[in-house]
Write a protein that binds this DNA or RNA. Structure first.
Length: 480
RNA sequence: GGCCUCAUGGUCAAGCGGUUAAGACGUCGCCCUCUCACGGCGAAAACCGGGGUUCGAGUCCCCGUGGGGCUACCA
């Protein structure tokens, strides 16, 4: 049994899409699961599409997501170079070899002739014109320096079939496949050729890629067969959609991995979530770390229908990761976001983080959850009304002054003590706990909803602010 | 247009000829509770349509409909 070798072969054309990342993740997971190797290869044969920082983004994203590779452009390996633009000579050699084997041929047709083959709809296919050139004619043109490409020689009849591990049997008639260009006139190969040569030379046993290659795979198999190479196992993956009609893509302004990280989604949650888009674990446990994914991944759980990216579920997962973190871990991740809050620097950071930890799913929500602390202002008396607590502005008028007095006397300004003191006050006043607590909380925060009860808010605010706010609130009540 | 391919709740998704058609997110309700959140419990919610095959079809076959892909000197 040969060692399993999978690869991720992105084209450095911009940002790392969620779909690309998932393809990389599955390749990585399968290799790990099988104790094999995962390889990174850059497919940069199209100079026109090259984007400056794209390569670095690919490295950074994979690293950030924890997807490590055993061989790749920046770390080397036995099958290098791992950048296609550095392998031009290799492709040329194999293209010429394929010509010798009859699987390809030189083509000297110019653009005009190719255009003339197309019908009014721009649809047309190459007519194998140059396939019929004699050896001498070819040699002559080559010697004369006539520009050429090398085309694949696809049979006119027959059917190409293969067994895809997720889609099952896929068949395409050769008559529906054009003699595509393998080697461009600039000497570089097209994807259609480079992927075959590289996957073979790099010993790739399992090709994991997007379903857009489903119907072109038979022509790759034609090349494997012509060379006498063993065909790899194919695993095509359905696309990740933005909605029922559109694929998730940066072009549509959809979130990339780094966008999601910047928004404050927990990285592990992102990886966990995308693993679930198109794959389902055997058990009902969906929350899994990368390590757990490595153990549980299996090709049989792969799904063949497109999956719509659901940010709501990602949020939930992110929140789950946040909640189970230790205070230190959470602080490390959350502090940069906490610094953007109006409350930052004015309150005990540890307390702020503790309050926000179970109330936030993504880190970027932190400022808005805390800003209210610094937005204290005139209180609408209606806020004091609460049916269940049986409280209203009238009750508040007697509660607030008494509460101010009580709080002034609390030594240890901490939740437990404050709660006890306020409950005791309720007893003294002959009121329900809720009547006192509700009124105090409203007076302290000027908000109907706050991330914590009256005593917690009081602790956070501190004695000085509490007393000041209480007296201010009392004043506003009297104006009514 | 031709070819490839997909189709279970709003979303992800289990199911692989016989099930009360899982589970998760979301939604809604209840409980807990000093509001919110957390947590607990519960509910609503699906087999695209039509033909077959079969004792029996979400599961197999065909057609239709709808979606996605390919049809580049892009990948």
């Amino acid at each position: 049994m040969n060692e399993v070798r999978t690869r991720f072969a992105p084209s450095p054309t911009g940002y790392m899409h969620i779909g690309n990342l998932r393809t990389a993740l599955y390749g990585y997971l399968y290799a790990k699961k099988e104790g094999g190797k995962f390889i990174l290869r850059l497919e940069d044969t199209d100079a026109k599409r090259y984007v400056e920082d794209a390569v670095q983004i690919i490295y950074d994203t994979l690293k950030d997501a924890g997807i490590t590779y055993d061989e790749g452009p920046d770390i080397g390996g036995p099958c290098g170079p791992y950048v296609q633009s550095e392998r031009a000579a290799i492709y040329k050699k194999y293209a010429e070899e394929l010509v010798r084997l009859g699987g390809a041929y030189y083509c000297f047709c110019d653009k005009e002739r190719i255009e003339s083959l197309k019908d009014e709809n721009g649809v047309g296919r190459y007519d194998k014109h140059c396939l019929h050139l004699s050896k001498e004619e070819v040699a002559e043109k080559l010697a004369a320096g006539v520009p050429y490409v090398i085309r694949q020689n696809v049979p006119l009849e027959g059917t190409g079939s293969y067994e895809d591990l997720v889609y099952g049997k896929v068949s395409v008639d050769f008559k529906d496949i054009e003699d595509g260009i393998l080697l461009k006139s600039d000497g570089m190969p097209t994807y259609n050729f480079a992927n075959v040569v590289d996957d073979h030379l790099m010993g790739i046993t399992h090709v994991i890629r997007g379903s857009e290659y489903l119907s072109s795979t038979p022509k790759y198999n034609l090349m494997y067969d012509a060379f006498g190479w063993q065909r790899p196992v194919y695993i095509h993956l359905p696309p990740i959609m933005k909605d029922a009609h559109n694929k998730l893509s940066k072009r549509n302004g959809d979130a990339s991995y780094q966008d999601l990280v910047a928004k404050g989604y927990v990285k592990q949650a992102i990886v966990n979530y995308i693993a679930l888009l198109g794959w389902s674990p055997k058990t009902n446990t969906e929350k899994m770390t990368l390590r757990e994914l490595e153990e549980n991944f299996s090709l049989s759980g792969l799904n063949k229908s497109p999956a719509i990216f659901d940010e709501a579920k990602l949020r939930w997962l992110s929140g789950e990761y946040l909640k189970e973190m230790s205070g230190e871990e959470f602080a490390a991740l959350a502090t940069p976001f906490l610094e953007k809050s109006k409350a930052y620097g004015k309150y005990d950071a540890e307390k702020l983080l503790a309050i926000v930890k179970t109330r936030v799913d993504i880190l970027s929500e932190i400022p808005s959850k805390l800003d209210f602390l610094e937005e204290y202002g005139k209180i609408d008396p209606a806020l004091y009304f609460n049916k269940k607590m049986k409280s209203d502005a009238q009750i508040a008028k007697t509660v607030l002054p008494a509460a101010a007095q009580t709080l002034a006397g609390v030594e240890k300004f901490e939740n437990a003590e404050l709660y006890a003191a306020l409950v005791a006050l309720a007893g003294d006043l002959g009121m329900k706990n809720g009547q006192v607590l509700w009124c105090v909380r409203i007076a302290l925060t000027a908000r109907e909803n706050t991330p914590g009860g009256a005593s917690e808010m009081a602790e956070l605010l501190g004695k000085e602010r509490c007393l000041a706010r209480l007296s201010q609130a009392e004043g506003w009540l009297k104006e009514e």
